[in-house]
Design a protein around this nucleic acid. Sequence first.
DNA 1: ATGCCGTACACATCGCGAAT
DNA 2: ATTCGCGATGTGTACGGCAT
Length: 333
Amino acid sequence: MTKSSLEEYILAMTGLHAVLGEEVSLRAPLFIRQRYGLHALHVGGRRFLAIRPDTSEAFRPAAFEKHLREISKAMPDMTGYCVITRGLAGYVRRRMTERGIPFVDVGRQLYWPQLGAACQEKVLKAHLPSADTLSPASQAVVMHLLSGEIRQPTSAKALSGRLGYTTMSISRCLDEIEGSGIAPVERKGRERLLHPQDTATLWARALPLLQSPVRKVVRIMETQIAGERLPLAGLTALGELGRLAAPGEATYAIWAKTWNGRLQKTETIPIEDEGTCLVELWRYDPQLFSPSGVVDPFSLYLSLKGNPDERIEKALEELTENAAPAEKSRPLR
DNA sequence: ATGCCGTACACATCGCGAAT
DNA sequence: ATTCGCGATGTGTACGGCAT
């Protein structure tokens, strides 16, 4: 049962026939023999030592490497080995590949350089998080970068403090940003540092992965948000920046999360009327990037992109060219 | 030895569309 | 209209491991 599923899995992943053979006994210390089941494993005509850790204890790659030295001492003619597991935690599997320990986690992942094989069934995105759009939190990090606020390499912890996300969310953002090659992420000891990046380059790289920050637009009475100092957005913002005549009805932006918490009960108005305004509910917090009371030009661009009005299209182009000057004659540092 | 950072896994919440 | 299911999004908790 277990035997055949191991063989089947190896065949499916590598195309090589595998046969789990006889048990191997060793003149190794007792705790080694108790802790690991050892079998011959023939794969593609080569003989390996299959090492099955006792499942009652958590598998520890660092400890295993010490044990491995004992095993190879007791078995000098060993040509190769592989750890056979089932249901190993993701981070342990990552340690294994980092340390170059060949292993088969049946049904999930196979890492076996001697066979020239490394496959993963489901969790490929853990290594290649290249989706076609960035998550809202990642986009917020990109906006933070574009704003020029980051002047030196910045840790996930520091970013979480500034942007109002948990370090864990930021950690995922760094995965995305690193995976999609938008900006350099350096691993320095235990920290991961996001490096600042030239605005024009950053914008060009990130643009295909960015989405409109606007999740939804609601119309309410302007008095409902009187004391809130929400940043101006949409066509109102474009007007404010002198790019276009401002429309009659003002548009504001607010983080959808905040809206849900405080203003959900606010009555929405179906049509434009005296005293009404539009509120855009954003995927991330517009206030983070709008010190002047107007949303940042990049988010504004994204929120209005695709608008059929030619004048708006033109105004937007000017806007971003201004904010992220294209690769003109700017000397590189 | 201890504190702290980053991360895996599990879970909560929300929005939206399909099914009833 | 209501319920159900699912994906997207973000968080809580536990834990490995580096730095001091």
